[in-house]
Write a protein that binds this DNA or RNA. Structure first.
Lengths: 292, 292
DNA sequence: TCCAATTGATATCTTTTGAGTATGGGTGGG
DNA sequence: CCCACCCATACTCAAAAGATATCAATTGGA
């Protein structure tokens, strides 16, 4: 059975056109080299060298085989190097699931840093709704996803990637639009747009903050995507409290105001399937933490 | 050192996702298989399988390596098959040198037959002057050449490929143009165009035929290419005796007449460098002889 | 023309390593 | 909780690769 050794030996003899010289370059004695070439020729079924005791030359079959052998040896080395790089987390593909409003924060900078630090890694961004992100993760179509306060799930690992502060969003004509310092308790009579309470831990947390401030928020609409909140506010359907980085996506017709008093924070979590966690996920998270 | 065996074993395990099943399909026991995979992983430097005692799965590095390994194994088999085919004379490249006037005869049909019989052989035709053909042969740029009566050469093997009869070429207005039977002796007072006597054995042979017929030909021009003779006759510079197949290339302004009496024949020889003679040359010549 | 030097092939012995057998350990199913 | 299945480990054996010594053939030079 042909082995790469045969090819290595063959290439050496073809390069030197001398068994003695090739053997020396390979660090073996000449007779075993002759033996291996002989075995190779028997396996291939035709002579690859024309040899007199004085000159060694490639046959036509040998010339063709030499080109093939070089390619095979190179490909073998490449395959090992690639596998090694992937194993070490320096190469491969990472499919990242996220919502569009996520890129304005540390994640956007981390992606840029990652491209520079790991040029052999193909980082693919998939912008999706939060529930679709969960589905894609479980289907194995994405490797990691970033969500604001996702529901707990037994199959998924969830760690906090970074924490954002929040900001109040008001329509431009709102009575508080020109007020500099607004406390949460000042909003007790307002109508609110919220993230959907059933799957957003952040929404539940906000609710609790309102209750603590002494009122139950009057929620007129619940949406799934954080960036949609701003649009609803602009449409005059209520006011909202949104993560700071979402506010980076500027919108006419609204104004942003900090919320005074107790600090309200929005956590972004990274999620992945435990069994599919490759070394790249760790590398990526490390970069995000460096940016946050 | 990685060998093809490692790849074969790896691919088998990847296919079955089971060491036991893979070992059975390979015809080896399971422990050596485990050992070889272990060695491979050590060589590559990263795990290729994730194995519990219950399930075997490819790692990310393993998935990539599997694709590479399949490609390498396929390429290895191909390389062997190709070399074997070339060695057996069923594949490769044959560079054929010839003059344009040669293709009208058995050679043209043999080339067609050869393309059908040996589809993996690339037959390349190089149309050249006779002396250039000799130079190309010696330089190793062509493998075989076809010449009418070439000069003997110690470096070259020369065998008769086929024999053609000859025909007399006259300008249309010639006094013998309407004569049915013409004997060589009738031409003693004519002006002739000949192939160059210094390198054409055929020309020397024709000269000898004329002498035998009782006259010394009055040669007005000597050329190198047989097809040129017809053009010179058409131009009224003399008459010529040319190989039969050259007459296939019809020309206005000339008429062809057989030469009565002793049969005059033109031999076409195949030439090649003895050391560079591959099996394809023999195959090609066999087809030509079948057509002749 | 002949001798010496060089090179590849052959024979034999040694060493390496791949393969087989026996067995242990861990996990999932009944 | 135990059994069965599967991969890993330990040990032995055989096959094959490698080393050494030697032969045969060819070429270059005297």
């Amino acid at each position: 059975m042909m082995e790469l050794r045969h090819l290595r030996y063959f290439v050496a003899v073809a390069r030197h056109l001398s068994f003695t010289a090739a053997a020396e370059s390979l660090g073996v004695a000449q007779p075993p080299l002759s033996q291996q070439i002989r075995d190779l020729e028997a396996e291939v079924g035709t002579a690859l060298f024309e040899r007199t005791t004085r000159r060694v030359a490639l046959t036509r079959a040998g010339i063709d085989f030499h080109a093939q052998a070089l390619a095979i040896l190179e490909k073998s080395g490449e395959a090992m190097a690639r596998a090694r790089a992937i194993g070490a987390g320096a190469a491969g593909i990472v499919n990242v699931g996220l919502t569009g409003s996520m890129l304005a924060g540390p994640l956007g900078r981390a992606i840029r840093d990652f491209d520079i630090a790991y040029p052999d890694v193909d980082l693919r961004i998939h912008e999706m709704s939060p529930d679709r992100q969960i589905a894609m993760l479980k289907a194995g179509q994405t490797d990691i996803s970033f969500l604001r306060s996702p529901p707990p799930d037994a199959d998924l690992v969830s760690v906090r990637a970074w924490r954002e502060t929040v900001t109040l969003v008001l329509p431009t004509g709102h009575s508080l639009a020109s007020t500099a310092v607004i406390d949460l308790a000042d909003l007790s009579q307002e109508r609110f747009v919220f993230l959907r309470l059933s799957d957003s831990l952040f929404a539940k947390y906000l609710w609790a903050c309102c209750v603590e401030a002494g009122f139950i928020p009057n929620i007129t609409h619940e949406v799934v995507e954080a960036a949609s909140l701003t649009s609803l506010v602009a449409a005059g359907l209520g006011i909202a409290i949104i993560p700071e980085f979402v506010a980076r996506l500027a919108h006419a017709d609204v104004v942003y105001r900090p919320v005074a008093g107790k600090t309200i924070s929005a956590d972004v979590h990274a999620l992945w399937v435990r069994e599919r966690a490759g070394p790249l996920i760790g590398n990526f998270l490390a970069l995000i933490r460096a940016e946050a």
